[in-house]
Computed example of a mutant assay.
Amino acid sequence: MQIDLPRLSDFVTLITGGPSFEERQAADRRTAQYFHAFGLQRDAACLLDQLAQADGSVPVSPGEARKAIGRRGRIVNLRARTPDLCMAEIRAKVGADAIETVEDGWRLSPLGRLRTRKARGDGVAL
C-alpha cells in the first residue's frame, strides 16, 4: 500500500503544538476555558489563545493565525477553518469591540484582554 504524502497533507495536519509538553497542556487548558466561557469552536479558541498570548502588543497576521489554528496540543486536525472565519466567530461571541484590525493583522483591544483574562480566571483588578 502506497501513501501519497502530498495528497495526504490536504486532509491531515500533523500538530506539533508548542516546544514542550507542558506548554501544549497549558494551551489546551486555555483553549478549553475559551470554549466554555464564550462557546467558541476549537479552531477559533486556538486563534483567541494566540491573540491573548500576544497580549495586544504584537498583531497576529493571517499567516501566523493559519499556522496556529488547531495546532495546540492536538495530534491531527482535519480541515481547520480559515482565520477569517475564526475571527468572525470570535467577534460574534467575544464582542466586536474585543478585536482591533491593524495593518499587519489582528490584536486584542484592552477590553478583549480583560475578557480573556476573566475567562481564564486570572485575577482582574479594575
Rank of each mutant, 00 (worst) to 15 (best):
S20T: 12
A68Y: 01
R7D: 12
L47Q: 01
G73H: 02
R24G: 12
R91M: 13
L40D: 00
D10N: 11
G105Y: 05
A52M: 06
V60L: 06
E64W: 09
G73S: 06
F11Q: 05
F11D: 08
G18Y: 10
G63K: 06
R72F: 11
T116N: 03
L51C: 07
A37M: 05
M1F: 10
R66Q: 15
L5M: 13
A125E: 15
G73K: 00
V58L: 09
L40V: 04
T82L: 11
R115V: 11
D97E: 11
K93A: 03
D84F: 14
T82V: 14
P59C: 07
D104G: 14
C86S: 03
F21L: 10
R29L: 10
Q33N: 12
L8K: 03
T116R: 01
R72N: 14
Y34I: 09
G95W: 01
R24C: 14
S57F: 15
V76C: 09
M1V: 12
A52R: 02
L108I: 04
V12T: 09
E100A: 12
A26R: 05
Q41N: 10
T82D: 09
L108N: 01
E23K: 03
S20W: 08
G105T: 05
R72T: 14
I15V: 14
Q25C: 08
R72D: 14
A37R: 00
P83E: 05
W106M: 09
A27S: 11
L126N: 13
L51R: 00
F21H: 07
A68S: 09
A54L: 11
I15Q: 10
A45C: 04
F35I: 14
I15M: 13
I75L: 14
D4A: 10
V94M: 02
T31C: 09
R91N: 08
A26T: 13
S109L: 07
I15T: 14
M87F: 12
G95V: 02
R7E: 15
L47G: 01
Q53T: 15
P110M: 08
P83H: 03
G121Q: 08
Q41S: 11
V76I: 11
S61R: 04
Y34K: 00
R42Y: 05
L47T: 01
Q2V: 15
A98N: 03
R113H: 07
Q33R: 06
I69R: 00
A26F: 08
R91W: 07
R24D: 12
Q33V: 11
Q41A: 13
T31K: 02
T13I: 10
R30E: 07
G95E: 06
A88T: 03
I90K: 01
R71V: 07
D43W: 01
R120K: 14
M1D: 15
C46R: 00
A54M: 09
I99L: 05
G95A: 08
V102P: 04
D122A: 10
V94T: 07
A96W: 06
D4K: 03
V124L: 12
D97T: 06
A44K: 00
S61H: 05
D28T: 13
L114Y: 10
L40C: 03
